[in-house]
Lab assay of single mutants.
Amino acid sequence: AFSSEQLARLKREFNENRYLTERRRQQLSSELGLNEAQIKIWFQNKRA
């Protein structure tokens, strides 16, 4: 489960760009304390 802070950040990123570069995913992973797979799957689900 994502914290409300993490979700807000993911939604902001998604609004700016529906697709993440690998580098951006790595940055978000480290900033949010999530693993890259969690972020990747969140974006895939959000696009679906």
Rank of each mutant, 00 (worst) to 15 (best):
A48P: 04
S29N: 01
E22Q: 12
R9V: 10
W42I: 04
L20S: 02
Q44S: 09
E16Y: 07
L7K: 06
E13N: 02
L32C: 03
R23W: 08
E31I: 06
E13P: 00
A37N: 13
N15Y: 10
R24W: 04
E36P: 11
N15T: 09
S30V: 14
E16G: 05
R12Q: 14
Y19P: 05
N45D: 10
L10M: 04
A48T: 08
K46Y: 14
S29Y: 03
L10H: 00
K46F: 10
E13V: 05
N35I: 06
F43E: 03
K11D: 15
F43Y: 05
A48N: 11
R18S: 12
E22Y: 07
W42M: 02
S30A: 14
L28V: 03
Q26K: 13
A8M: 09
K11N: 15
S29V: 08
L7G: 02
G33P: 00
N15P: 01
Q26M: 11
I39G: 00
R12K: 14
S30L: 15
A1C: 13
S29P: 02
N15F: 10
S4H: 12
E16I: 09
E36H: 04
W42Y: 07
T21D: 13
I41S: 12
R23I: 14
S30D: 11
N45S: 09
L32P: 00
Q27D: 09
R18K: 12
Y19Q: 07
A48R: 13
F14Y: 09
R47I: 14
L28H: 00
S3G: 04
N17T: 05
A1F: 12
E16L: 09
N35A: 13
L20K: 01
R24K: 11
E5G: 08
L7R: 06
Q38G: 02
S30Y: 13
L20H: 03
L28P: 00
N15C: 12
R12M: 11
Q44G: 07
S30M: 13
S29Q: 05
S30H: 13
F14N: 01
N45R: 09
F2S: 02
R18V: 06
S3Q: 04
F14C: 06
I39T: 01
A1I: 13
E13G: 01
A1H: 12
Y19E: 09
N15M: 12
Q26D: 05
K11I: 15
N17I: 04
L28F: 02
R25G: 12
L34V: 09
I41E: 15
K46D: 04
R9N: 04
A1Q: 12
E5C: 07
E22P: 15
A1S: 13
L20D: 13
E22R: 14
Q38N: 05
S4G: 09
L34D: 00
L28M: 04
R18A: 12
R18F: 05
F14V: 03
N45L: 12
Q44D: 15
K46V: 10
L7D: 05
